[in-house]
């Protein structure tokens, strides 16, 4: 038995697939590639496969993850090549690592996610993005209304925004807390910024691109987050900036 974690990117029209359909797509690709994946027991066996952090419909990614348990394989890289050989629809595996057998699955280990948020043509905000972000983040608390299963809840999102910058005064680059403990959706952040600027957002204005998904850890220097796999990390990611070792960002 071998547990693999795969990093994948998703671009092009396939960004309009819902999360469940992405899973179904990958399940069939695994079968086409004849990967020796483990199945659950019972009358309707399913593949032992889990996805980290769903991405909203319409968004693209360079750093999403899935874990799968295999009965056998020649090498992790071969699994990656075989899968890429049967997928030509805009999803591509860019990295693979072997997980210890008793590791947490992809879903539960997510701790942060990094996004570049841009605006569709003709839909950019009229406010100055850099100045607004400065002012927005200079508050001690940034309250936002989060929709949960049990209704609405007001929370302070400031501690959930780990790093931020504005690029070319038209894009927002952020590292946000993610996962089951404290999840900040990029869409909620954008809503809050518009509210702060007292501007009505044009419908479908923001475009979300996920750069990477992070897990958490602790070492002598403290608590950090780090891309789940360091392969194929984009140059402009916070995790490869000067002074960051092994992609670790202390938060």
């Amino acid at each position: 038995m071998i547990k693999l974690r795969m990093k994948f990117k998703k671009h092009g029209p396939i960004r309009f697939l819902g999360h469940l359909d992405v899973m179904r797509y990958v399940q069939k690709a695994i079968r086409r590639a004849e990967i020796d994946i483990k199945y659950s027991e019972g009358y309707s066996p399913h593949q032992i496969l889990s996805f980290a952090q769903p991405l909203s419909v319409g968004s693209t990614t360079d750093g999403d993850y899935m874990d799968m348990t295999l009965i056998s394989c020649n090498s992790p890289e071969e699994v990656m090549y075989k899968l890429n050989g049967v997928m030509n629809e805009g999803i591509e595996i860019t990295g693979v690592s072997v997980l210890p057998e008793k590791s947490e699955n992809a879903m539960t280990s997510v701790a942060a996610a990094e996004y570049i948020i841009s605006f569709r043509d003709g839909k950019a905000p009229s406010f100055d993005i850099s100045k607004t972000m400065e002012a927005f983040m200079s508050n001690d608390h940034v309250m936002a209304v989060k929709k949960t299963k049990n209704g609405e809840k007001e929370i302070d999102i400031k501690p959930l925004i780990y790093i931020w910058e504005v690029i070319d005064n038209n894009k927002i680059h952020v590292l946000l807390s993610a996962g089951s403990a404290a999840n900040l959706k990029a869409a909620l952040l954008i809503d809050s910024i518009y509210k702060f600027a007292e501007e009505e957002m044009k419908e479908f204005a923001p475009v979300f691109h996920r750069l990477d998904t992070y897990l958490a850890g602790d070492d002598d220097n403290g608590h950090y987050v780090q891309p789940m796999i360091m392969d194929a990390v984009r140059e402009d990611s916070f995790s490869v900036r000067d002074g960051v070792k092994e992609g670790k960002i202390y938060v």
Binding site: G12, P13, F16, Y25, G58, E89, F204
Partner: peptide, 19 residues
């Protein structure tokens, strides 16, 4: 457009590119 695809049910019906 993205705006249309995001505002209708099941945009996957219209994007093509299937396996």
């Amino acid at each position: 457009s993205d705006e249309i695809l995001l505002s209708i049910q099941k945009p996957e019906r219209y994007i093509g590119g299937e396996v």
